[in-house]
Structure formats: structure tokens, C-alpha cells
Design a protein around this nucleic acid. Structure first.
Lengths: 235, 235
DNA sequence: CGTCTCATTGACACGAATCAACCATTGTGG
DNA sequence: CCACAATGGTTGATTCGTGTCAATGAGACG
């Protein structure tokens, strides 16, 4: 038992968790954390693997420990739209729905700390600090969703792509040039996120490259050459 | 003092409030309600009047007692987008932002129960039930926002307008024909909501009318003739 | 009765989707 | 180690839907 890895047994390991101080757990002291500790189990998910399917019974929620997850909805005719991205420290789950409304899929290899939904709600009810923390997070997500509504409703393809790269660069830690950063999403996923087609995304990328604003380095990385120009385009 | 109207003095009147059992207040018993009671004041707002301006210091939050409010964001070049509608019982306010991110404007004459943001947060911290209630509401808003993202990103103009009318009809209490219901939004506001232009909205309306699916009765009312067809178009 | 606001209708332009080829990279089996 | 398929990405030609610009129409209100 002492040989159990952190992956298999989170119990007693929260203190050393990568997201101990950024996830919801940050709202709890080490003693309170025991309640969640007892409930959670670690799970590693491969790139492309689904964690929750829309329409399924909504049994779990989770903290993202590492990796990136996309939340998607699809139209009646089968086209998909990414309605949220989750990064390490973010919370995954629809606590108050018995049936999942969204599909959650790993975009990169991902580590999760999974809780049964019912159990988590029970802990939530007993820990106002946790609830407060979740409320803040949910408010922030709502704000983000509304901002994206504005983009989807009003921005041109060029503005969307520029804004997307701008956000990625900012998250990668700066706006100084030249900044090299990863593109964790495929072209198809970028299109799903921005409400465009693959072809349009591709064309916008080459346009940015032609103008010397970013340079693509393989499929999954980019180098930011002109942050001001990019920011201006994102507008 | 006994002549004070409910509008001027909410104190001691919560029991008879129109939204006592649907708003956040529903989470509190009459005794607990006293804390909010002491904080709140009623205010009536005319159609078109703004309650909060994006960018301003974020001083207040409120419960909607009667009327409809739109939450808007605008692009750099001045076009507006409605990112949320609030109905009686809904909660207005960004509790965790010192600067307002959204403009809130009354779409119809509206009655509010207004609280200072700081005071409300203090009450919230002391009443977990209230916080839980707000968390549920915020989660529901997030869900709604994400659904609208799908619409804005993927639906055609026809689908958007049909979906909008479908929602209004449902809210008006049924899908039986012929159902007469109000259009609380102007054409311009519908366009702002759906991410279209006034002209496109107008054309879609006449198309629906030509096909005998809805009939417009003046500018501000519609009669639903064929609910199934409307639902099918909304997809 | 005239003006003002809001809505409708028409002509046209433009941006992004669609359809279709082609190219590059990765991985696999001989 | 190379041939070859499979996957993902780019580029081009064309179509289609919605935005834009402009004129007209209909209520609301003074």
C-alpha cells in the first residue's frame, strides 16, 4: 500500500497536489480537505478521450490537475461547438443537472481528480468556503462565456483568430516578442471554438503569417512576432 | 409613515413581495430575510433607462421584481450585443467585480429591489443558503449563455429568429395555437440579441408570416399559428 | 396634420462556407 | 529503410447568406 502511486491514491497527497493552491481546494485548509480527499480519485485521460457525454447520466465532477479539456455542444445536424475550455485548477461538472448537458473531452493528456457528484454536493453543503469559491469560479466562467458570445456574434474571422492567438500568448506568459507558444488545439478544434470552418482558420493563419505578425512552427506551435499588431487586430 | 408605499419602503413588506418565492429570497425564511430587508430599497426604472453602465464603479446589485432587463456588451466599433435577459425573480449584478463589465438597461418599465454590493456580499457570507441559491442561479445562467453561444456560432438567421419566438411563446405559457404573446423587444433589440441586423430580423419575420407560422399583430405582439413548424425551424 | 421613430422592402456587395484538389507529416508494414 | 496509406493542413474556385446602403411605409405623438 505504501507503494501506491499518487495517481492511484490521492489520499494524504493533496498537500503535494499540483493544483492544491489554485483549484477549489484552495478554499479549504488541510483539515477540511480530508473530506474531499476521502471522496476523490485520480484518473489519467488520453488526448481525445471523453470524460462526460452530453445526454448521459451526470454522475461525476472533477478538478483538472493537468491538461486541457474542451466542453462541447452540438447542433441537431451534427456540427460541434466548443463552449468552454478548462485548464489546470478549473472545475469540471454540472452540479445541478441530473443529465449532462455538455460533452467533456481531453484535448491533451489530462490528469483529473474525480468526485462522485452526489458526494461532492454533500461536502459543498457542509463547507460554505468551498461553495463561495465555486460561486466565484462559476461567475468568472459566466463572464467568459458572455465575452465569447460577443465574439461569436460580432467579430470577423480575422478578429476571432487574432483574439484566440492573443489569449494563448497571454496565457503562455507574456506579450514580448518573439514569444514561442503551443497551440494545444488542432485547426479543427480552433474552428469549433471560434465558430468558423477549418479552411477559414487556416486562411487567417496564413494571412497573419504573411503580414509577419505570427510565424507558425510546425502544426502545434507559433511564434509571436508582433504583439501590438496582434492586439490591434483582436480589438 | 404608515402612508409609505411598498415602492418607497420595502422594509417589512418582503412577505407580500411579488417575487418572494421565486427570487433569491426564497432561500431565506422570514427571519433571515430581515438582514436583506434592512439593506434593500425599491426603485422603479423606466423603459430604456440604464441601471448600470459598463466601466462604471460596480456599486449595486438587485433582484428584479417586475419587468425585463437586458445585459449588453459592445464592440470596439460601437455595435451592441445582448448577452443576457433578466426576468422577474432574476438577480442582477456582478458581485466579484469592482468595475461593471456589462451595461444593464430596462427593456420594459421595471421594479427593482436594490442592494449595495458590499452589503449584499456581507449578507451572503453569513447565509450559506443564500449563497447556494445564488450558485444555482449562476450555474443556470452559465448554461443558458453556453446554449446561446451555440446559437450565435452555428444557427442560421431563420433558426435564430424561430428559436427566439419559440422561447417567447414557451415563456408566455404554452405551445397551443393560436397563442398570442408580447414581443417585449424592439426589432433592433432582437437583432442585438440574436447577433443579426434589424433588416435580417425583419425579413425573417415576414418569411414566417408568409408561411403562416406566426402572425404579427402590431409591432409588439405576435400570434403563434403553427407551433410544430416553429419548433421544427428552431431545431 | 406633420414630424419622428421604428419597421419593412429592395438592390447590391462582401465575407465566410462549401466543394474540391493538393500538400505535408506521421505512422505502419513489408 | 523505404513505400505507402492515413491524417491533418493548405490553397483555390465558387456559391450562398447576411450585411450594407437606400428608399419607402406605418404608427405614435405632439
Amino acid at each position: 500500500m505504501t507503494a501506491a502511486t499518487a495517481l492511484e491514491s490521492p489520499s494524504g497527497r493533496c498537500e503535494s497536489c499540483a493544483v492544491r493552491d489554485v483549484a477549489l481546494c484552495a478554499a479549504l485548509d488541510d483539515a477540511e480537505l480530508a473530506a474531499l480527499n476521502a471522496l476523490g480519485r485520480r484518473r489519467r485521460v488520453a488526448r481525445g478521450e471523453a470524460i462526460v457525454w452530453a445526454g448521459d447520466e451526470n454522475l461525476i465532477c472533477a478538478n483538472i490537475v493537468a491538461g486541457i479539456i474542451k466542453l462541447t455542444m452540438s447542433t441537431a445536424d451534427g456540427r460541434e461547438q466548443i463552449v468552454g475550455l478548462l485548464y489546470p485548477g478549473d472545475f469540471l461538472g454540472e452540479l445541478f443537472a441530473d443529465e449532462a448537458g455538455l460533452t467533456a473531452t481531453a484535448i491533451t493528456p489530462t490528469d483529473l481528480c474525480i468526485y462522485p457528484r452526489g458526494g461532492f454536493r454533500a461536502v459543498l453543503a457542509r463547507h460554505p468556503a468551498l461553495q463561495h469559491s465555486l460561486l466565484r469560479r462559476t461567475s468568472a466562467s459566466l463572464d467568459q462565456a458572455r465575452r465569447r458570445m460577443l465574439t461569436l456574434a460580432r467579430a470577423s474571422a480575422g478578429q476571432r483568430v487574432a483574439g484566440f492567438l492573443h489569449d494563448l500568448a497571454a496565457r503562455a506568459g507574456g506579450t514580448h516578442a518573439p514569444l514561442r507558444f503551443d497551440l494545444p488545439l488542432s485547426r479543427g478544434e480552433i474552428a469549433e471554438l471560434l465558430g468558423l470552418t477549418i479552411e477559414t482558420v487556416s486562411r487567417q493563419f496564413t494571412a497573419l503569417q504573411t503580414r509577419g505578425i505570427v510565424r507558425l512552427s510546425g502544426r502545434r506551435a507559433a511564434i509571436l512576432e508582433d504583439p501590438e499588431a496582434l492586439a490591434a487586430l483582436a480589438a
